[in-house]
Nucleic acid binder design. Structure first.
Lengths: 203, 203, 203, 203
DNA sequence: GATGAATGAGAATTCATTCAT
DNA sequence: GATGAATGAATTCTCATTCAT
């Protein structure tokens, strides 16, 4: 991995661009958190970012593009963390994979609870459908691979089907746990979800 | 529950009111279906209802109140159907309750697929949070009652906790099945969900 | 001609509408005169009209519709006056028709010199192409009819062709006279244009 | 007219300047033709010219200056051609001067029909008033000189006055012919205009 | 009660122009 | 000189809500 000779003039420009995009995404996130989706506006985001409304449009085609990028950034972080945890567990003992993944997922969700609320409860799902589908697909694929590898030990249905079921169930239960705080502890939730998924896969 | 003596002159007025509210709700539903949430407006709803925008505000405090009421109506219908199915099954054989309820739920969801899409994928969840929570609570309560009655045969956790888990998982899986149409048949979906829930409850 | 029973409630509403449209057109004219076409804006027009920007859009679809209507009003007035003068002269002595019409036209143009300047020199011709074409067509038709009636006495070409030539030449010469004020008196202009048109028609 | 000794180092700079101005004018013309006046912008012109928006402002004070220069270039070309044709005819037989000039003018206009349309129908006349006036003045002067030379044979009014009339009539009729394509052939148009002008001058 | 014209704050977006590099 | 990112005032248009009739 040799660092290539950096282009003389392009590097700082790219750096500036990255900085502006970063500023806008951060500001977008802040505005979404502060004002909610309905009350968010491109001018507010620009003001929060300390730039002019016109500048924002040099980096994003329109309002949706800004929201999409903010959401994408969050979705990617989440996706990365869950995928990493899952991958780490793939070689380990079978009975801890679900357990460990649930904790990793809950960690990630709880760290960003405020934004999760905006993301899940305020944004029309259509706005982030693709991003969410991307996360789900990525995790489903990993899960399906895991199930395929254990074929014979687990429920005899196509791995993709079992993965679809398991991923969506886990997603919903963890997300709603974080956002709705039903009367059970985190460990109790994990115990139940783990029990459900494990029982299902072994049935 | 006996209806109290109705005021002599108020009855026809209440009747008119009911009619207006009905007109507005129907129009609201139509506009949401036709134009989607973003393009819906109070003026469009009023026009569709054949009344003036001003009149709408005699029956609903603001735009949100209209959307809420439209959603509430749909949620109540859904809630009624699922609750009825569940109640019907409570006295029957244990192993068909989940199965029958899943079919009843899928019937109800598929009948209103277009509106379900608006409701779940277009409306910000905040808009219908309470209504949805109401449906979930009602079904959770029934489920918890059922589990309490079978205490001893089923997973040894507080019934309300198992119900919370089961109801949310089923809700998510059936809704996403109808809206996302993953590559499995309805019977295959029911088989998996039934297997998961049953295995969980018996674990 | 019996006046029909006036609709009880519709009349005053129509009256209000007419009033609003009138207010907007007047304000539009004033803003065009004061600020010119480029600096004119819908909000300025609304402010000048003493109404809100939103109200303007109840009567006109967009900015162009307002400008078009202002222009149309002016074009219609002009068209009416010239057509009336021309019609009046059709039965009279041949040698005064051009003369009288030129004076009528110059009267009309000079009375509205300021707006004529906006109309001809500021508005992109595309903006008022249709309106202008309408005026020209109307006058051309009358002129062609006149020439057809005199067939035998006048230049032996299709009347529509001679009319096309004459109308456009007169239009240009009178308009530029009013706007550019070349060093000749009005009577001198009329003498020249009259001479040109008359000589042409008799050639 | 001898070029003064050029400053030793300034020459190549002037050359570069000339090149940049040329690039900008060409780009401006292309953008006006491609996008029309309303959709044209300084940034588009700069991009089309392959320079930066900032550079444009080293050669032109503002947007209007660019448009003016583009228009001026076209007007000068046109002016040159018509003046040349007119000059060529001054020594020839009187009765072919108008005829030949009309053809020369129509040639020039038809060759640039697309830009003529932008120039005449899209650009607010104010934008090109001076340039157009320049063309008209130049041609009028030539025409007046010609008429002065023929004094005695032609209509007895100040030559400048007759020239003003004739030049504006011809301009309008040829331009509208090219842009509006009325139902007559080019030769028919020339015949009529020639007849009108000749008859007028001899009246 | 019903009406619907009027409201007006505010949204997204553009583009001529500047100025630090 | 050249650059082009940044500017920000200004523009068109929307729509939830009000209130005089």
């Amino acid at each position: 991995m040799v660092a290539p000779t950096p282009p003389v003039r392009k590097a700082p420009q790219q750096e500036r661009s990255r900085l502006m995009v970063e500023k806008i995404l951060t500001a977008g996130r802040e505005v979404l958190l502060r004002d909610g989706y309905d009350a968010a506006s491109t001018n507010k985001v620009a003001k929060q970012a300390g730039i002019s409304p016109g500048s924002l449009y040099q980096y994003f085609a329109d309002k949706d593009a800004v929201v999409d990028a903010v959401v994408a950034k969050y979705a990617d972080e989440l996706s990365d963390r869950v995928a990493a945890s899952l991958t780490d567990q793939l070689g380990g003992p079978d009975d801890s994979l679900i357990h460990a993944t649930l904790h990793a997922l809950l960690d990630a969700l709880e760290e960003n609870e405020a934004f999760l609320r905006v993301f899940v409860d305020e944004l029309p799902r259509t706005r982030n459908h693709e991003r969410l589908a991307g996360v789900e697909q990525r995790v489903s694929d990993l899960m399906a691979a895991y199930l395929a590898a254990r074929r014979g030990d687990v429920r005899d249905v196509p791995p993709s089907r079992a993965a679809w079921i398991v991923v969506r169930a886990i997603e919903q239960l963890t997300v709603r746990y974080v956002l709705d705080r039903p009367p059970m502890s985190r460990d109790e939730l994990v115990a139940e979800v783990d029990a459900m998924v494990t029982a299902y896969l072994q049935s």
